[in-house]
Amino acid sequence: MSNLRVRMGALLTGALMALLITKPAMAQVDRLPPDLQETLARIGPVFQRDIGTHIPATLAAFQSVLRSAPRDGVSVTADQHYGPDPKQVLDVYQPASRQDAPILIYVHGGAYVTGDKNAYGEVYANIGWWFARQGIVTLNATYRLAPASPWPGAVQDVRAMVAWARENAVRLGADPNRIFLMGHSAGATHVASYIFDRALQPADGPGVAGAVLISGRYRLDYDPADPNGRNMQAYFGDDPAQYPNRSPITHIRDGAKVPVFLVVTEYDNPGLDVRGAELLFALCERDSACPRFLRLIGHNHLSEVAAFNTPDEQLGREVLGFMSLGR
């Protein structure tokens, strides 16, 4: 057995022992309304067979519970421009009477070619409502999309979001040294590119205290069976020779060691759970210690973010723990 395999075995054994000792939080899907639980249970095992049908079905199932979700103690300032492009806007969710609060910037998904901070009805707004209710200044941002803005346009926008947050932190009652990024799907890819690739950061580094990466693509390859393969090419280009340098995982040894929390789901988009596991191993190997990791049982690729501000608080509480501990 090679030294790499020995080391991999030791790292994974250590990670398993840590999980056994800490007893990770149980899934909280059973706290959702019965009809929503039934929908998730029915869609989950077949989610990957037809994501074009099952994604909108999942989102539609959450709308009722999200419309009635609590919004107390939060003020919202919409459409703040962090850049000159019409897509470079964000909404600020601000807790009442809070000073030196952390800042969480949410970067949505959309397979690189679609998406908006106001997409999917109540879904992304409720991320802002929930975290602000926990005392976190939350920014829900839109960014430029392919094909009009190919690589690295979206990463440049993440950089601009962070710069805006730092410049406005004190005005918002927040701490400019406690900025966290949270990206989902394509948004996780863009966040990972920003925190790992030094060439895409300011000269003084990424300027964030941590990053939550939820079901992203971290190594690029084109698979004709992947329903989002062509969308990936629309952003990253169709030249495979460019993919290694444009893959976030390529750069983890060269950049600043930003604390990371990795999340996948039981029923994820094709291949994204594998990519999350691959990045987990690469970070475990780099640091000789594994980052926070969570596999959400009972959830699919969209329900994991749609569940914020519902009775299922598992992922939200894990993110708060990560932000509090820095690991």
Rank of each mutant, 00 (worst) to 15 (best):
R98H: 14
D100C: 00
L104H: 10
A141H: 04
P95I: 02
E122V: 05
M232H: 04
A165I: 09
Q94T: 13
A154I: 11
V107Q: 09
T39S: 07
V305I: 15
V258W: 05
V208S: 04
L32K: 04
G52F: 11
A101G: 06
Q156S: 07
L139S: 11
V155S: 10
V263C: 01
A125C: 00
G83P: 02
A277Q: 15
Y143Q: 07
A203R: 15
L59P: 01
P95V: 03
P206M: 07
E266D: 10
I179F: 02
Y143F: 15
L280M: 11
Y218W: 07
G83H: 06
M161T: 05
G173N: 11
G135D: 10
A111H: 05
E122I: 02
G316W: 08
G326Q: 12
L20Y: 08
A146R: 02
H190Q: 14
R98S: 10
L283P: 04
A146W: 10
Y194D: 04
H108E: 06
R198E: 14
E313G: 00
F47K: 08
L280G: 05
A192W: 12
K117N: 12
A10K: 14
Y93A: 02
H301K: 09
G205I: 08
F293I: 05
V260P: 00
L40C: 04
D50Q: 06
L296P: 04
H184G: 03
M182V: 06
A101P: 02
R5K: 10
R7D: 11
D72Q: 14
W164R: 04
C290F: 05
N177S: 14
I21C: 00
Y194I: 09
V208H: 11
G121E: 09
Y267M: 01
A160R: 14
T310E: 06
T53Q: 15
H81Q: 14
G229V: 08
A61Y: 08
N300W: 04
Q201M: 09
N309Y: 10
V107A: 01
S64Q: 12
I252G: 01
F308Y: 13
